[in-house]
């Protein structure tokens, strides 16, 4: 079975004045279809940078990323966009719903970008799945934070992605609403057989992923796939802010 996401020797540096700051250094890991992976670490450890690079949102300074069989380094920005449209779903911390579109239209966006048929029906079904069938014509401003994130989940799954990147999906929600959203996320993920990459600070959420990558100073300091996942979590609770 081939990997859905394969990251090797990934390095990312940013210029800062006369110097370069290394945000990620020599990162390597692989995820297979249906894997769930949580990336944890303190602020500034490079979690979101790793997520963005893995999804082809940015160019690495060194290393290779293979996403659903595509070597991202060989592709132009527009070609990477096509790969994302075909294979990738996103869930954002700040929901990132388009304020001028209704809940239904927001969910339809990725499908319409692909030129998918029946996208309206698929979107309606997904809204039904997330419990918002009756709110489909509401605008984001008319929805609560939890409802907005559920619309975000429906949008992420509308193209039946091979891999889903979720950046702090409960970061802007209270605990109760966050739990409900996470239940939904894992449920949808399980049903669709999607690979899930989750960046989170939530120490209750992280262990639900099958694999845990812990970052610190731009490097993987532990990978549960390579060691005992329970032990690897021990120091994390004190580092996370």
């Amino acid at each position: 079975m081939s990997a859905v996401l394969s990251v090797s020797n990934l390095t990312k540096t940013f210029p800062s004045g006369d110097k370069f700051i290394t945000v990620l250094s020599n990162i390597s890991f692989e995820l297979m279809a249906g894997d769930t992976c949580a990336i944890v670490g303190p602020s500034g450890s490079g979690k979101t940078t790793l997520l963005g690079l893995s999804a082809g949102l940015d160019d690495p300074s060194a290393g290779t990323i293979v996403l659903c069989g595509h070597h991202l380094g060989d592709l132009s920005e527009d070609d990477r966009a096509s790969v994302r449209n075909q294979h990738v779903g996103f869930v954002f911390q700040t929901f990132r719903l388009i304020p001028t579109l209704t809940a239904l239209e927001n969910v339809m966006v990725p499908g319409e970008l692909r030129g998918k048929k029946n996208v309206r029906q698929i979107a309606l079904d997904l809204l039904d799945r997330v419990g918002l069938a009756d709110r489909s014509h509401h605008y984001p401003a008319q929805l609560s934070g939890g409802e907005q994130q559920r619309v975000g989940l429906a949008r992420a799954f509308v193209n039946r992605p091979s891999i889903l990147f979720a950046d702090e999906p409960t970061g802007n929600l209270d605990a109760e609403t966050g739990d409900a959203v996470i239940e939904l996320l894992f449920d949808l993920n399980r049903t669709a057989g999607t690979t899930l990459v989750l960046v989170t600070h939530d120490m209750e959420l992280a262990p639900r992923a099958g694999r845990l990558l812990r970052l610190k100073g731009g490097q993987i300091v532990s990978d549960s796939a390579l060691e005992d996942p329970v032990r690897s979590l021990q120091p994390l609770s004190t580092e996370v802010d």
Binding site: L57, E77, A81, S82, V83, R84, N85, P110, L113, R155
Partner: peptide
């Protein structure tokens, strides 16, 4: 940015 994330070309 959201459109670009979901695969819209330039």
């Amino acid at each position: 940015a959201v459109l670009r994330c979901f695969g819209s070309r330039t």
